[in-house]
Design a binder for these strands. Structure first.
Lengths: 165, 165
DNA sequence: CCCTAGTTGCGATTGAGTCGCAATTAGGTG
DNA sequence: CACCTAATTGCGACTCAATCGCAACTAGGG
């Protein structure tokens, strides 16, 4: 169903860098490559085990480590919406921002030339050689912000409002 | 030595919000307020114990939680330069970006009107109601980038270069 | 001064991630 | 194409940040 045209991008990237390809790595890499949502290490393990039963958790972490070092994947926190775990996604040509809704938990992606400009400015003005950036925004998505604006009931004190982060 | 003019800002903020003030909270809050570097929970505990011996770790975490919810402090990862712990800083009027050098470990702060524009753009275009933002950048600071550029020795393979992050 | 809802200390617990080491294997070499 | 070895894996114990339930304590309004 999915055109396997770009499907092997990560795999080929690893091959061209002379990385030794094991069946375990192939499983993990293919799962990340094909993922349609942001995966944490445990989901990654679970999915990769469908291809490689017996695959060990440590191997997943070691593969993630490798991919991070080669700058083929980015690590995300997603505003710690559910615990302290990390999420991973294949690095694309253009960085994007993750908008995490504290109310419904949805993750939205956003990219902007202003972000690119900002990165240039940082590089120029601070003389900083950028390797990775992580911009995460927490708040209320359009739907939830609208929903929250309506009910003027229970306006509450500052303390009462101080729920999610 | 330090002018105690703004020193009690956090404390007053808490008072005006009707937050019950305990000696433990006062200790934690004063330490965060006076901090000159980014503190993690353990350093915070250690420093606060100088004012309140016997202060418990759980209390520190609970106070941090409270301050985060009231949006008086921001939580940082500082690109996980040393482990997975979090760092805390008093929220200022203007958000700033943290630049973490993978080579020397220094943390630089950077603020820019482009960042403010970018936030507006996110709010407008995505209809997202922003509560917190966290922009962290990892790479090499000016000094380290310069130092790395010099030695053309050991250029190495992509694998060899894939050290930090 | 008293009362009680809110807060603290404690110690056990969770859960993500790491480590050392013996067994296994990818993939270059003769 | 069998062999060799450095790289990789599985395993299980371990680390370390952070959380939890509960009994004891206390800030601060009445």
């Amino acid at each position: 169903m999915t055109p396997p045209l770009q499907r092997r991008a990560l795999l080929e990237e690893l091959g061209s860098k002379g990385i030794r390809m094991t069946t375990q790595r192939r499983a993990v890499v293919e799962v990340i490559q094909d993922a349609k949502v942001h995966l944490d290490a445990d989901s990654l393990l679970e999915l990769a085990r469908k291809r490689q039963p017996g695959l060990n958790r440590a191997t997943v972490y070691r593969t993630i480590e490798l991919l991070k070092k080669l700058r083929l994947v980015d690590e995300l926190d997603l505003m710690h919406l559910e615990g302290e775990k990390h999420y991973y996604e294949v690095k694309t040509t253009r960085d994007h921002i993750h908008l995490a809704c504290f109310r419904c938990g949805r993750i939205e992606e956003f990219s902007s030339s202003l972000f690119e400009q900002l990165k240039s400015e940082i590089a120029m003005q601070a003389g900083f050689s950028i390797r990775v950036t992580r911009l995460e925004v927490g708040g209320a998505c359009r739907a939830c912000a609208t929903a929250d604006a309506k009910p003027e009931s229970a306006a509450g004190s500052a303390v009462a409002q101080a729920r999610t982060q």
